[in-house]
Design a protein around this nucleic acid. Sequence first.
RNA 1: GCCGAAGUGGUGGAAUUGGUAGACGCGCUGGAUUCAAAAUCCAGUGGGGGCAACCCCGUGCGAGUUCGAUUCUCGCCUUCGGCACCA
Length: 834
Amino acid sequence: MPDYDPKTIEEKWQKRWEDEKSFKVEADPSKPKYYLLEMFPYPSGRIHMGHVRNYTIGDALARFKMMKGLNVLHPIGWDSFGMPAENAAIQNKSHPDTWTHDNIRAMTAQIKRLGLSYDWTREITTCEPENYQWNQWCFLKFMERGLVYRKNSEVNWCESCNTVLANEQVVDGLCWRCDNEVVPKQQEGWFFKITDYADRLLEGCKDLAGGWPEQVLTMQKNWIGKSTGAEVDFQIKDSKESIKVFTTRPDTLYGATFMVLAPEHPLTVSLSRGTAQEKTIDAFIKEVKSQDKIARTSEGGEKLGVFTGVHAVNPLNGETIPIWTANFVLMDYGTGAIMSVPAHDQRDFEFAKKYDLPIRVVILPPDGNTNADDLKEAMTELGPMTQSGVFDGLADDEAKLKVCAHLQSKKIGKATVQFRLRDWGVSRQRYWGTPVPIIFCEKCGTVPVPYKDLPVILPLDAQLGDKGQSPLKTLDSFINVPCPKCKAPAKRETDTLDTFICSSWYFDRFTSPHEKKAPFSKDSNRYWMAVDQYIGGIEHAILHLLYSRFFHQVFRDMGLVASKEPFVHLLTQGMVIKDGAKMSKSKGNVVDPDHIIDRYGTDTARLFILFAAPPTKQLEWSDQGVEGSFRFLKRVWRLFEGSKNIFDSKPVGDDTGAELQIKLKELRRMIHVTIKRVTEDIEKRMQFNTAIAAIMEFVNHLQKFFEGEMNHTHDPSTKGQALFKEAMETLILLLAPFAPHITEEMWEQMGNKGTTLKAGWPEYNEEYLRTDEIEIVIQVNGKVRQKLSVAEGIDEESLKAKSLEDPRIQEWTDGKEVKKVIVVPKKLVNIVVK
RNA sequence: GCCGAAGUGGUGGAAUUGGUAGACGCGCUGGAUUCAAAAUCCAGUGGGGGCAACCCCGUGCGAGUUCGAUUCUCGCCUUCGGCACCA
């Protein structure tokens, strides 16, 4: 009997899949489609277990859907622009392009060893002009739609990466990529107006509920950060000017006892001119500017402020209130100015206490005490308005609405909405990215590169500076270009685009990767999109997933795509850890996928990864667990080899009859129970671990059956042989999505012509799931006291009687009063006694 | 502080709609096979008590609802993740 030899089997089938282009697909409107996508990799050099897990989960699902008869699009590509290529190039005195392509070659070889069902004819590499030209196209199209602008602003600057970062790329004040501190810097740059879509991106979260993990939706909602409230104009005393504030609590307007401007607010300086406070203000602004931004915006930070020397008028009660400036008011949120209601806002309360500013209670507390001196902290809950003139007694939403209506009628304010989301800064002062398709002309100003001149090619004959300075900024052949409008000498923009633009629409490109006239074909897109199942890490919960949703909305407005959202279902796979920590070189707990495959084969690696934990949970790597999976496959192989001689048998007669022996009936039941369990675990619950557990149980049963019934010295029945063969076929097909190579080999050796993919997914028959006798649990006062075997169709009364008659049960009910008997059909009987 | 997820044997994890807690695997113990080992197979394996049949306890902690709670409610504890001087 030949041993299980994964190496030979896996190489054979991988070659065959490749030769026969088994996973190549075309759009076919007559067939139902399924688009399965794993987040495409960055070509860092080698794949790690995180990749393997990601792709294995995707592949199992893709193969399952293929077997189910769906037209499955399962593509792969390379997210190949970005900083690591530059850093590596500097280190190795190489070129980002060389490094990137070497890595892609190496990783392709690794990925191919995993036996994944990719349509390699659709492979895309984002750093190739035929792909990145469409980033430029998008930039220009977005610009036409008013969604792109250039501004000089304070941006997030990473000193180590030498570039600007988007807000989403700053994590706890540190660069998402290199963990260096991010500093503010004045910088000219390009922005995408993602804020125009804030409301739609938020609304879209409702459509995604159910399909996306709640955690990710919460993070997106938090990031967008919608607040509803009002804008109110406060007249500056003895002036025509007014200050606009944003508040979420218009119902507390009567309690505004002072105002605070952000130090950066233009009025802070201008108002103080000519007052006694002038010098104090200037010194204060200087002090705040020198303060660390993170320290300033963290809650523990000390609240500091000074009086501007000027007063404003509360528009509702006409009261004169002082205008202050303070570090806790931020210029980039709301209007950069607030009305302070110390009685009902904790920050305002602390500030008022510190600087001895007046406090007035205008929302009635539950105890009715409106004496501000008794307040220990701000009363932030909603409640009826008080000390608020005609509004007294109104509460909650109604109060807010009435105040807003009043403000609007007096033209001193209105209901409005604020978002936390900021526009997306897409300029990068780096080389290895998509050149921004813009030309600066002294006469014509900022001129977009005409579509016919696309792509603006990233010159590959340039060398990076030793600190990573972009050579584009000094490369004459790149910079100097005639103005497209007036033909006078002009200069190219030397910034490149954020790499996240590449990943914001690559899934659209996959639907028609060789399209020459557009980023993607509308027809192909209409057929394949949206992505039915997207799989990737939680680290993209905001960044990539928000940007992609934004692109999709814009494409939708442009009439390019039809679906509402790009990704219907999202699965965020858990991390792979070892010895309680994430695998990392520094911890020395990295397990190299290649070594595992060399030793056990891909099927074992795949099986272990899918079996050890549900896809969304973190996976603890266990070498012994891998051994276990290997052992299981060896057992399957042995069972197969040992029973080969009976596979020639042809079924004789009808094996569905009641005359089947008990053991055969039980085997038939196991076949159908297992099909049901595996199918539902994959399809409804995406829980591969329990699906595999069910297959293991099936194998255990088959093994016992084989040894007991098939291996007798006397002739086994023909019916038994036929049913056993059916069981083995079922086993192979059910196992195929998880361990595709070994199953394909067995399938072929059984004499089947096509592949398991063509064979289709087994169906179960409800009727065969039934048993004649079922086990009923008998409880007394909720505790299991007996188990009875009864006929499947037993009626409630007989079951009750049978339970009460049972001697073991009577020991418990003896001398007690039976209060109630609860019968759960086909499950249990609970006898309540006292 | 707010929002979200989680907490089950020695271990990874099961228990799908409130109905037998611990499926399946790993590890461990004992046995078979072997000159021996590897491999394989068989049996056992939550804790405590008992010769045994069985009994008691047990899903982070404390209450509650229920005939019955790992599952639902309330209050805590711990861990992880996100947001946060956001007006």
